[in-house]
């Protein structure tokens, strides 16, 4: 009889842990090439507290669609590094099931914590005496900051959007096709105006220096 009771308790605890850890992620919302629902939920929850609405920037972390950005970044990474980063997201999402956040309801996955608790969890990583732990947070911040500050609306508002630049033709452009394409995609030499600089080794300065704030892409 006792065995049955212990088994029941174990199953109940297991069910509770699974429920708090893995179940209940929203099945609606955007689909991603790489990101799983739990990873997207974590990124959204982290972005919400890392980048709250502010007067300085025109969009919040939630509005910047950082899961979408992270998904594009993961696609660009080699498989091993992609998996490491995804493991990092999962680690953050579920670490609070092992080391709960302070306060009531702290024994939940990261994305289910209150905003204050999430910020406290991230602060604990940032101020940790362990270098490795701080570096892990730095890696997470790096992914999210590059997506948030690098968002065209953020850069535009800061006056830091990339220059609108046309690349002059150089000899190399007739040698290298776009990556993954064949040589039939090389430009035709005959189509280039005679005045275009064909060799950078012979070309004069292209133009006067750019003037900040002029002719920039802001969208």
């Amino acid at each position: 009889m006792a065995d049955i009771i212990w088994a029941g308790i174990f199953i109940a605890l297991l069910g509770m842990a699974l429920g708090r850890g893995w179940a209940g992620y929203s099945r609606t919302g955007p689909s991603y090439a790489v990101l799983a629902r739990r990873e997207a939920a974590f990124l959204e929850a982290a972005a919400e507290v890392l980048f709250p609405p502010s007067e300085g920037l025109p969009l919040s972390g939630v509005e910047a669609d950082l899961p979408g950005y992270a998904d594009r970044y993961l696609v660009a990474l080699p498989v091993r590094q992609r998996n490491l980063l995804r493991a990092l997201f999962v680690l953050f999402e579920h670490a609070t099931l092992v080391w709960p956040a302070a306060g009531r309801g702290g024994f939940r996955r990261f994305s289910s914590l209150s905003e204050g608790q999430r910020l406290d969890v991230l602060r604990a990583w940032e101020s940790s005496g362990l270098y490795l732990r701080r570096m892990v947070l730095t890696a997470l911040k790096a992914v999210l900051i590059l997506g948030y500050v690098g968002h065209p609306r953020s850069l535009g508002a800061l006056g830091l959007a990339p220059w609108k630049l046309e690349s002059p033709r150089v000899e190399a452009d007739y040698l290298y096709p776009p990556i993954g394409e064949g040589r039939d995609r090389l430009p035709d030499r005959a189509s280039v105006p005679a005045s275009s600089p064909l060799s950078p080794l012979l070309s004069p300065p292209l133009s006067p220096p750019l003037i900040p704030g002029v002719d920039q892409e802001t969208s």
Binding site: L122, K141, Y148, V149
Partner: peptide, 25 residues
Amino acid sequence: SAPAALAVRMPGLGEALVKHFGELP
């Protein structure tokens, strides 16, 4: 560097962090 890459070294979290971004210019 790319401004967002430089922003990675900004300290803090939340409002304090976003305040540093506003100082990038």
